[in-house]
Design a protein around this nucleic acid. Structure first.
Lengths: 193, 193
DNA sequence: CAATTCTGCGACATCCGTGTCTCGAAAAGC
DNA sequence: GCTTTTCGAGACACGGATGTCGCAGAATTG
């Protein structure tokens, strides 16, 4: 209804971005820290979000939206399953901070029932995994849900490793893909990487 | 110095156990919640641990000790690297709640400089990975540190999956081993699992 | 330039977690 | 059984985080 002014929209977006960035590393961080990260006073933060729950909700919604967009852009339903999975992994690494934010505190997804929108990002990937399992290009001895969990866990670990300097950022996507798809066992009978 | 009474030792152990269990799922949980989980009054908790930092330190130390014991019992330096890794994975899954506790808040390991003792659990595994990479049974295209991170991440994901009912507890170890070693790609040319 | 909107600063009350203390009861040890 | 130790309940002060408000300055809009 009420039309948002451009400036108002900008500051609001900056606050949400800062919230995701800070809460991904420290879910219990105070609102003052988030406001500082957004280069905004604490009053302004409260002017845009009534309470902490509102801000969390907005951060979750924004993250889910970004992940959904990245997922559909990767076209998980096109091409060979393993190639599609590689594209999805690259997309996930691109929004790694948001993955990290949602993965770090699974209670957030449950607390704010934005689950309906999350299915838009979740469904296509599960469908991709099921498709890969049907045509034999993915392991069908484990559940599709587990594969998705493993995917998220590895992306999360990569985001943390990059943040800690253990892994160069440009190698994150390929490293995750290699680890998840072919595993870390035996590189003898494999094309030299 | 002061000899600990058996009862005192028991309650202290119960509090530490409760702290690990609770903080693994919610690192910001209040001391009152931890005391309740240990079926102990908040006064008693403070009688055993001066402040929150003391309790965290004890929980970290206990977890590191448990993980170290499980690691050395798995004899990572014996036998073929991949078989040794499978044993280590089984051992890690066995102490999954402690892994989950330490992995969920990496700051804890940094805050309390019990890093010296942690090396006792960390070193042998890194050595095992390096050994596997040397003899070609493990992928040498990625860093040993990354492999260890991936191992921890998958064990963490499995612990969460079991907790959420997504994965049966008895299958956790084998699932993690299979995912990490052979990956989730192609089960066509593989012995039927 | 004038009016509206947005922002920063500071004050304020409030709630929650924390750490300390005392006292009486319960339990363990000798 | 008696002494010592441990525990539970409750009260207390303190600090930090939170949410609200008013006011004056700055920025945007027309």
């Amino acid at each position: 209804m009420s039309e948002d002014s451009p400036t108002r929209r900008r500051t609001r977006a900056a606050i949400v971005r800062a919230a995701v960035s800070v809460l991904a590393r420290r879910p219990e961080a105070s609102l003052a820290v988030i406001a500082a990260e957004a280069q905004v006073s604490r009053s302004t933060l409260h002017r845009h979000f009534a309470d902490r729950g509102d801000l969390e909700r907005a951060a979750v919604a924004q993250s889910v939206e970004d992940i959904t967009r990245a997922t559909v852009d990767a076209r998980p339903e096109h091409g060979a399953p393993l190639e599609a999975l590689t594209r999805v992994i690259a997309a996930y690494v691109g929004v790694g901070d948001r993955i990290r934010f949602l993965f770090h505190d699974p209670r957030l997804l449950g607390a704010h029932s934005d689950l309906a929108d999350f299915a838009a990002a979740d469904g296509p990937v599960l469908a991709l995994i099921a498709r890969g399992q049907r045509d034999g290009s993915m392991d069908s001895a484990v559940g599709a849900g587990w594969i998705e969990q493993a995917l998220w866990a590895l992306v999360y670990a990569a985001a943390e490793a990059v943040d800690g300097g253990l892994l160069p950022g440009h190698a994150a996507a390929e490293t995750v893909a290699r680890t998840l798809v072919t595993g870390i066992g035996g590189d003898a009978d494999r094309e030299a990487g």
